[in-house]
Amino acid sequence: MQISVDVHNYMETLVGAILASDEYTSKYDNEQLADLACLALNQLRPVYIRHDIDFLSRLAEERLLVFRQQTEVAIEAAESLIKDDRRAVREDEDISEYSLDMTEEENDNRELEWFEKPILTKK
């Protein structure tokens, strides 16, 4: 079994179908579409399946509509992040990164980036 061949996330199919529409392909380049897909998929609960046809034949229409609505909302939220892309104006931004020139203690004490901050904290 190869997981990338035999199993896939159905939400990727829904996100891909929406992002392939002229509404998005006319506004965004491939890099931005990839960013949109990543940002949207990170907001959605994955639905792993083996075969689309088997999955869809057993899926209630109401549930499919819920999946589509969730996908549209996630893409709209992702689009707002792309429109206000912080990467476009980096001159006034302090970039914090791991440095081999720093001691281990200095690296450990540096401020975490927004994507590094843990969701759950230990008590």
Rank of each mutant, 00 (worst) to 15 (best):
H8R: 10
L14V: 05
L14Q: 04
V15A: 05
A17W: 04
I18H: 04
A20V: 06
E23G: 04
Y24P: 01
T25F: 00
S26I: 03
Y28I: 04
D29C: 06
A34Y: 11
C38R: 15
L41M: 08
L41R: 09
Q43W: 01
R45K: 15
I49H: 07
I49L: 00
I49K: 02
I49R: 02
R50S: 14
H51Q: 14
I53R: 13
F55N: 01
A60Y: 03
E62W: 13
R63Y: 13
L64F: 10
L64R: 09
L65D: 15
L65N: 14
T71D: 08
E72K: 08
V73P: 05
A77R: 15
A78Q: 02
A78P: 01
A78T: 00
E79N: 09
S80I: 05
L81P: 05
I82T: 05
K83I: 13
R90C: 12
D92I: 08
D94L: 15
S96Y: 13
Y98E: 05
L100W: 05
L100K: 14
L100Q: 14
T103M: 07
E105V: 06
E106H: 00
N107G: 08
D108E: 11
E113H: 09
W114F: 13
F115C: 13
F115T: 13
E116N: 01
E116K: 03
E116D: 09
K117L: 12
I119F: 14
L120H: 12
